[in-house]
Design a protein around this nucleic acid. Structure first.
Lengths: 205, 205
DNA sequence: TCTTTAATTGGTCAAATGATCAACGACGGG
DNA sequence: CCCGTCGTTGATCATTTGACCAATTAAAGA
């Protein structure tokens, strides 16, 4: 019946840039779901193109995965965060809550968490570079701010900050890696965690 | 020269149970390193046996992986922990520190963490069952204990406990999944985290 | 020592997979 | 309306991989 309609949908011609975008989009979704060992054929089928076309835009599967990594990580690290963290015109608590609201808003996605974890297991250097960046650009300044606000006899270490950070990230891991039920709104949990953390270093609101 | 010696080493005949054990041991190590998509041939090579021999002991790769999961998870959940957690003759802080010392001692291994994470990504139901067990048998009783000790106006929720738990587990993830440097001794970090947590609910030592 | 048992192996098959290429055909320019 | 460009496709190749089986041989019992 609708045969004519369905058949006319085949062989759509796209400008290279648009096609490339479409492939990377589909690849992000596909590899997040089935893991980095997913096949180029399944990916092509899901993207509605032929497998051969993938190799028109990417020289190899590894090259395609590079594009996937770039897409997933790029622009998910807001350049505003370092400035936000060190803005002493706002209370430290307020800064931390705003930061973690935006940060979890950026990375608590099915695609990001699963591809990041898969890349970690695969030994991709990308993860270490990313987390080094998190430590140097976000956590280190934040540690400075907390130390500045904390009593001299209760100074936190970087490991304490990783502990706070990990407790928050673990929420996303439970949700997207293990498929366990988690609160729809993560902010109340994060708020309490930040409050406990700051109180632990004798920092009031 | 040493040819005779080297050649006599080939084709060692083992009793089935011992050979099976050896295969599972090698498989745990191998799959933890390369991921669950590792090949039976590489595994066999590493185990010093032929690939065909794997199929003498396991009907399929999936069945072998089942044995790997069983090996990794079995007996890593001590039956002593529930009793330890609810033993009110000891201080809550002491119980929590003892528990997390033993718990991290049990699961902070390269093999456990990586296979557990890979299984989670692969969608194995095992992970959910394991974490449900952790919640029901360990965290739920622990939550009861903390609520008992906490002030009525500062009662923790399960999500707060997951937050503490996650912050601790994240240490192992950084170490074994992301290969990032972490403290050799995790207990000082855990001790401070537990202390902040308890203080947050107005529980003294 | 001889026989029997079964643990182990080399060889092989079928399917899956990454990668390649000649040919097709949709689109824009003349 | 025709033509040339190039995005796209179907077919195909070389490996890899899970799985299987007949032949081999180490080890135990008579």
């Amino acid at each position: 019946m609708a045969d004519g309609m369905a058949l006319t949908a085949r062989r759509k011609r796209l400008p290279p840039e648009a096609r490339r975008e479409q492939i990377v989009d589909a690849a992000v979704c596909y590899f997040a779901e089935v893991g980095l060992a997913g096949t180029t054929r399944d990916l092509a089928k899901r993207a509605g193109i032929t497998q051969a076309l993938l190799y028109q835009y990417f020289g190899s599967k590894a090259e395609l995965l590079e594009a996937v990594f770039a897409r997933v990580y790029l622009d998910r690290m807001s350049p505003r965060w370092p400035g936000l963290i060190t803005d002493r015109s706002r209370s430290l608590r307020e800064r931390m809550l705003t930061f973690y609201a935006e940060y979890t808003g950026a990375i608590f996605s099915y695609e990001w968490l699963r591809i990041f974890m898969a890349a970690g297991l695969a030994g991709e250097a990308l993860n270490r570079r990313y987390l080094d960046h998190v430590r140097d650009v976000l956590l280190a300044p934040l540690l400075e701010e907390i130390r500045f606000a904390a009593r001299p006899d209760a100074q936190p270490e970087m490991e304490d900050l990783w502990n706070l950070h990990g407790g928050i990230i673990y929420l996303g891991i439970r949700r997207h890696i293990y498929h366990l039920p988690t609160p729809d709104d993560v902010m109340p949990v994060i708020e309490r965690a930040v409050d406990r953390f700051l109180a632990g270093f004798a920092i009031g609101h």
